[in-house]
Amino acid sequence: MVRILLRFSEKIVEKPITAQVILEQKTPISIVAAHVNSQGGEILVEVPSTHVKKVAEAFRQRGVVVSFPKLIEKDSEKCFECGACFSLCPVKAISFKDDFSVVFDLEKCIGSSCGKCVDACPARAIKLVADLEGLNSK
């Protein structure tokens, strides 16, 4: 599952957009947290990782601002780019560039529901970011 953050503006907040996307994409979307009122709103949802690209696109087409909350952080100061984390990632969120730099795809990362790479890092350069910090502080 991948978590995406949906921002609804005042103009579209009344529309049943989430329901439309669920029906159109034929995929379950579970709402993790929601803050909605007549001025607009934010919903954090979980989408199966296989459908995330299409679902994000479907929301964007309907005027929703889609972002991927940061679930993991790589400390570039500490990281010496070994890639020990690479083979532990079940969703292929970690990859190598041509020069063998290690890159994290934050759109694919499933964060604290996995966390397999964290204790595999010999440089201790990977940190899970607390999930809802951004949302709850509002």
Partner: peptide
């Protein structure tokens, strides 16, 4: 390449050395 075959199954493989730093 990141993938090897063990017992006829594809297995993801990590370097422990930094190939970037070696370069």
């Amino acid at each position: 390449s990141g993938t090897i075959t063990i017992n006829e199954r594809k297995v993801s493989v990590s370097p422990l050395s930094s190939l970037k730093e070696a370069q």
